[in-house]
Design a protein around this nucleic acid. Structure first.
Lengths: 209, 209
DNA sequence: CTCCTAACTGAAAGATCATTCAAGAATAGC
DNA sequence: GCTATTCTTGAATGATCTTTCAGTTAGGAG
């Protein structure tokens, strides 16, 4: 009983998420967040607790939606190499045109918050570990299929995580598609390269455009 | 004529630089910066103008000292490959023990400021271009010396820039030496790998430890 | 329809922030 | 030593930020 909530909590959370994503935590004031969410401070505090709690909820929503959707493309493909290619293709396009032009909320937050909120460290570590595990699985499948150069394997997963974090940083400088492609292509080239005998691999689309 | 300045400007700037480095711009308040610099607000404003100006000065000092010192190790070595190895070795050690445990001031600031201060974009772009040029030169020398796998060359410079930015992000999560080494080693392994014929290269120290 | 309860509103509180400024202190040139 | 000039001090200013709260509105239960 009592008055029913006049706004959709998840929709409001998405609005806050985008504000945090674009401007960061400190640079997003409560008045601005409330404007984005379309509600008043009182409602925001009643629904979410505090600015920090709202941020935590937004981070977790991001991990559950945006981030895990991207990882899904990596794990769902039967071919490990195709999964890797499509992951990086989507990443580049989202950074040029889409929402990733503001980088990655988790990367941004890791940089902004690592020294401040130990509670959030768990969220960051979990996200990085998930990404690494997905890369590891894809690399294992790719290796089993004979798509990797000898010497390359699942132990390159940490490198790919670092490359993705680096691209998230570079994306904020709006470098344009060619520069981002160049990073992604070079990262994959280091894995699949058939250095002296190009015909070793029957999959050779990685330089296609 | 007039009273002489009671503090050393460069020393104060270094203190502010470290504060910004550890906590970021927004999370470094003027009272805190003044405490770190050992001066009062009035003196800080007389000497540096505004908080933003102080930050700009700190950024440029960082680029002129910390950053270009690291790049020097990359360009000074006659062997391109040795330069690359020592650059990444130093990077990893500084991230484990040294001042880079707070990441890189420029990376942190790029993430925090890209959407806010177009004036700073020039500083960021210049820094990234310098780093890329240094990698490019080292890769060119390494290739000329026959130290790279065929297919690898100066066009991998952008990838290395991304890897470094990614390591700067990961460093904030305090991942420990093995994880960082794993990233650096994998990045170099993708360049120098002698995949099917290890004896192709007479320099093969990249797996030494 | 009435009442009870929960949500909403928007102004206010209380803290903190960047910045300024008047007053005191110290130096260089005369 | 005196004066003009510059630096330092630390409190004050005005803005802004997060958070709260009293008063109002609206929906469900009886």
């Amino acid at each position: 009983m009592g008055r029913t909530r006049g706004f959709d909590t998840e929709q409001a959370l998405d609005a806050a998420l985008e504000t945090f994503w674009v401007h960061g935590y400190d640079a997003s004031s409560m008045p601005e967040l409330c404007r984005a969410m379309g509600i008043q401070p009182g409602s925001a505090y009643a629904a979410f607790g505090s600015k920090r709690d709202l941020f935590r909820a937004a981070l977790q929503r991001y991990a559950r939606t945006v981030s895990s959707e991207a990882v899904l493309g990596l794990t769902s493909s039967p071919s490990g190499l195709d999964g890797l290619r499509s992951y990086f293709d989507d990443l580049v396009e989202a950074m040029v045109d889409g929402r990733r032009r503001w980088g990655c909320l988790i990367t941004n937050s890791l940089v902004e918050f690592a020294e401040r909120d130990p509670d959030l460290a768990g969220v960051f570590d979990l996200h990085l570990a998930n990404l690494e595990a997905a890369f590891e699985a894809a690399l294992t499948r790719a290796k089993a299929a004979g798509d990797l150069r000898s010497g390359a394997g699942p132990e390159q997963a940490k490198l790919l995580v670092a490359v993705v974090q680096g691209m998230n940083v570079l994306a904020k400088a709006r470098p344009g598609r060619p520069a981002l492609r160049s990073v992604a292509d070079a990262a994959l080239a280091g894995l699949v390269a058939a250095p002296d005998a190009p015909r070793l691999s029957d999959r050779c689309g990685y330089l296609q455009d």
